[in-house]
Write a protein that binds this DNA or RNA. Structure first.
Length: 587
RNA sequence: GCCCCUGUAGCUCAACUGGAUAGAGCAACGGACUUCUAAUCCGUAGGUUGGGGGUUCGAGUCCUCCCGGGGGCGCCA
C-alpha cells in the first residue's frame, strides 16, 4: 500500500458516503505545493455527473477527511479542489514502512500478465544501426518495468531471418559466386566457415534490394530463391545459416555492450512450421481469399475512414512474407507462450502494417479477445540538423560506432572533471562505459516515446543538467556518504518526523515511487521514470545541501537522516535500473 | 490524392489523458564552498502552447477549419 493509495481510499470512502462513486477519490501529488501536499479533483467531476454543487461535495468530503488520523489538512479551494496534507508523524510512519520494503512501496501485480515484449528487431545482413537504438532501449526499459511490476515478461528480439530479403541475398550471391557448393545440385556437405562476412552482406543487400526495384527478372529469381529456401533446399539452408550466424554474432555484441538481454532469441524462421497449417486453417475458414493469384486477408472494418490494403498471406509465387510470419508468431505467442499482452516496440512507420496484422489476427481467431496486441511506436532519433541521424556522407551509422562515440565522450568528461583519476585502468574503463551507456539511454528515455528527438553527444554526456551521468554522479555521492558512515560506525536508524522543509519534500517525493511505476506501465512511457529519477536526485541534493548528515549531533536524527539517504539511493538506483542504467560504486 | 503523427521559452524537451499561476535542462545574469564528491545548490529573466472558431465551471490536452513539418499507402522489412 502506498500513501497516495491510502489517501485515495480515504477520499473514496468519503465520496461513497455521499452516494457517489469511490473512484472520484483519486488523490494526486499537489500541483501547488505551497498550498498542500496532495490534492483531489474528483468533486468537480462528481458534480457534473450528479448535478450537485461541486463545492458542497468537496466540503463534505474534506470534512470527513479531516476526521481521519494522520490528516493534517483537508480544505476546499477554488471551484472544488480538495487540498490535503498529512502530519509529520504520519509521514515518518509511511517513510519507515516504505524504506524498509524491498519493493519501495510498490505492490506486485495481483493478477500477473504474460507480457511478450518484441523489440530491437535485428535483421540478417544488417549490423544494427541507429535505427535500432530506440526500439532496443525503450523495449528493454518497458520489459524491465513490467518485470518489476510483477508480470511474467518474455523478451524476444524477433530476428528478421525469413522473408524476401533472404531470397534477394541468395540470388545475388548465386550470381556473384555461382561455383559455391550451396548452389550445386546433389551436394549435401557444406563448409563450416561462412563464404560471406557481415560486411559482404551489408554491401550485397542494399544493392540487391535496389536492383530488384528495376530488374524484374532478377526480382523474380529472388522470389523463387525465397520459396526454395522456405521449402527447405539443403544448400540454401546451409548458406542461410551462415548468413544468420555472422549477423547474429555482431548483434549479440551490440546488445551486450548496451546491457540488453533477451529471454528468447527467436527469428521469423522459427515459426515457419506453423505457417502452412495456419494458412490452411485461414483458407478453410474463408478468412483468406484468392486475389490476383495471391492469398490475402481483407482487413477493412466498418467505420473506416480510409481503404485498407489487404494483408498478403501468400504471394503469387507461393512465398510467405513478413505479415504471414507475424501472424504465425502471434499464433505461437498466444498458444505456446500464453501471452496476454504483446507489445511491439517498433518505429511508427510500421503502424499500418501492425493494424493489418492485428486485425487479421482477430479476424482469423489467432488472437482471442483477451489477448491485447499493441504497436508501441516511437519517434525518430534525429541529428543536430533535425533530420534522421546519418553520417556526414548520408550513410547509416552503426550502433557499435554510436556506442564507441558515446563511451569516448564519457571518458573525456571524466578526464575534464578529474573523476576516477587514480583508479585502476580496468575500473576506470568500466566506469567510462557505464557512464556512456547511461548518457545514451537517459538521453533517449527522458523524451516522450512518441516524439522525435535530437541526438546530442555533448549534451547527453554532460554531468550537468538532466542527464544520465548527472544521476550516476548523484547516486555515487550518496554511496560515498554511506561508506563514510560505515567507516565511522554510524548506523542508520528509524526515520524521524521531518523538521526541515527539504527533508519533508524528499520524503514526500520518495513516497510517490509506486505510482510512477504504475503510470509508466499503463502509458508504456519510460520517460515518467526518467523524469522521476531526475527529480529524486534533485530532491536529495537539496536535502544534502541543507542537512549535513555525518556532522549532525542529535544521534537519532543523524541515524534517521542516514536511513533517508539510504532510501533515496535505493529509489534512485531502482529507477535507473528500470531504465537499464547501472550506477558505479564510485567515480 | 487519401490516412496517420506532429507544432509548447533563444535551443533541447516535459506536462500523470479535462484541473488551479504551462514546467525542467541548456545557454544568459546574480548569489552560496573551513562542511559528507561544488560536475552541487539557491535566485533573476525568458510564453498569445502555430493561427481562427467551438464544447464547459475550467482546454496545451476534446471538436472543427486553416498554415507549417514528418511519415505511410497491394505481394520489401
Amino acid at each position: 500500500m502506498s500513501l497516495l493509495r491510502h489517501l485515495s481510499e480515504l477520499a473514496g470512502a468519503a465520496f461513497a458516503d455521499l452516494g457517489l462513486d469511490a473512484s472520484y477519490g483519486q488523490v494526486l501529488p499537489s500541483q501547488r505545493p505551497e498550498l498542500s501536499q496532495f490534492q483531489c479533483n474528483g468533486a468537480m467531476a462528481a458534480a457534473k455527473k450528479s448535478g450537485r454543487p461541486p463545492q458542497e461535495i468537496a466540503g463534505q468530503v474534506a470534512e470527513r477527511l479531516r476526521s481521519r488520523p494522520g490528516v493534517a489538512l483537508a480544505e476546499v479551494a477554488g471551484p472544488g479542489f480538495i487540498n490535503i496534507s498529512v502530519t509529520d508523524d504520519a509521514l515518518a510512519e509511511w517513510a519507515n514502512r516504505t524504506a524498509s520494503d524491498p519493493r519501495l512501496g510498490h505492490e506486485a501485480a495481483a493478477d500477473p500478465l504474460t507480457v511478450v515484449v518484441d523489440y530491437a528487431g535485428p535483421n540478417v545482413a544488417k549490423a544494427m544501426h541507429v535505427g535500432h537504438l530506440r526500439a532496443t532501449i525503450i523495449g528493454d526499459s518497458l520489459a524491465r518495468t513490467f518485470a518489476f511490476g510483477g508480470h511474467k515478461v518474455i523478451r524476444d528480439p524477433h530476428f528478421g531471418d525469413w522473408g524476401f530479403q533472404m531470397g534477394l541475398l541468395i540470388a545475388a550471391i548465386a550470381e556473384e559466386q555461382p561455383d559455391l557448393p550451396y548452389f550445386q545440385e546433389g551436394v549435401t556437405e557444406f563448409p563450416d566457415t561462412s563464404p560471406v562476412t557481415l560486411d559482404d552482406l551489408q554491401r550485397i543487400y542494399p544493392a540487391a534490394a535496389a536492383r530488384a526495384q528495376e530488374d524484374e527478372e532478377f526480382a523474380e529469381r529472388a522470389r523463387m530463391a525465397t520459396v526454395r529456401l522456405q521449402q527447405g533446399d539443403p544448400g540454401y539452408r546451409a548458406l542461410w545459416r551462415h548468413m544468420k550466424n555472422v549477423s547474429e554474432q555482431s548483434q549479440r555484441a551490440d546488445f551486450a555492450a548496451l546491457g540488453v538481454e533477451f529471454d528468447l532469441w527467436y527469428g521469423e524462421s522459427d515459426v515457419h512450421d506453423l505457417i502452412e497449417p495456419m494458412v490452411e486453417r485461414l483458407k478453410e475458414a474463408g478468412v483468406a481469399e484468392e486475389s490476383e493469384g495471391a492469398w490475402i486477408i481483407r482487413v477493412d472494418e466498418e467505420g473506416d475512414k480510409r481503404e485498407w490494403p489487404p494483408l498478403i498471406l501468400e504471394s503469387r509465387t507461393g512465398g510467405f512474407l513478413y505479415s504471414t510470419t507475424d501472424l504465425a508468431t502471434i499464433d505461437f505467442r498466444v498458444r505456446d507462450l500464453g501471452a496476454d499482452l504483446i507489445l511491439y516496440v517498433v518505429d511508427r512507420r510500421q503502424s499500418d502494417h501492425f493494424t493489418q496484422v492485428f486485425r487479421a489476427a482477430r479476424k482469423g481467431g489467432l488472437a482471442p479477445e483477451g489477448v491485447a496486441m499493441e504497436h508501441t511506436w516511437f519517434g525518430t532519433m534525429n541529428g543536430p540538423d533535425g533530420k534522421p541521424f546519418k553520417t556526414r556522407e548520408g550513410g547509416v551509422i552503426r550502433l557499435g560506432d554510436v556506442i564507441n562515440m558515446i563511451v569516448d565522450a564519457a571518458r573525456k568528461r571524466l578526464d575534464e572533471a578529474h573523476l576516477a583519476e587514480d583508479y585502476p585502468e580496468e575500473e576506470r574503463e568500466r566506469i567510462a562505459h557505464q557512464v556512456g551507456i547511461a548518457a545514451l539511454k537517459f538521453g533517449d528515455l527522458v523524451n516522450n516515446r512518441t516524439s522525435d528527438y535530437v541526438f546530442d553527444l555533448d549534451r547527453f554526456s554532460s554531468f550537468e543538467g538532466k542527464t544520465g551521468p548527472y544521476l550516476q554522479y548523484a547516486a555515487v555521492r550518496v554511496k560515498s556518504i554511506l561508506r563514510k558512515a560505515e567507516e565511522r560506525a554510524i548506523e542508520p536508524g528509524p526515520l524521524v518526523p521531518p523538521t526541515v522543509p527539504e527533508e519533508r519534500q524528499l520524503i514526500l517525493h520518495l513516497l510517490q515511487f509506486p505510482e510512477v511505476v504504475d503510470r509508466t506501465m499503463e502509458l508504456r512511457a519510460p520517460n515518467h521514470v526518467a523524469e522521476y529519477a531526475f527529480e529524486t536526485a534533485g530532491a536529495f541534493n537539496r536535502f544534502y545541501d541543507t542537512c549535513h548528515i555525518l556532522s549532525e549531533e542529535d544521534a537519532a536524527r543523524r541515524a534517521g537522516w542516514l536511513a533517508l539517504a539510504r532510501w533515496s539511493l535505493a529509489t534512485l538506483e531502482l529507477s535507473l535500473h528500470l531504465l537499464g542504467i547501472e550506477v558505479p560504486d564510485r567515480m
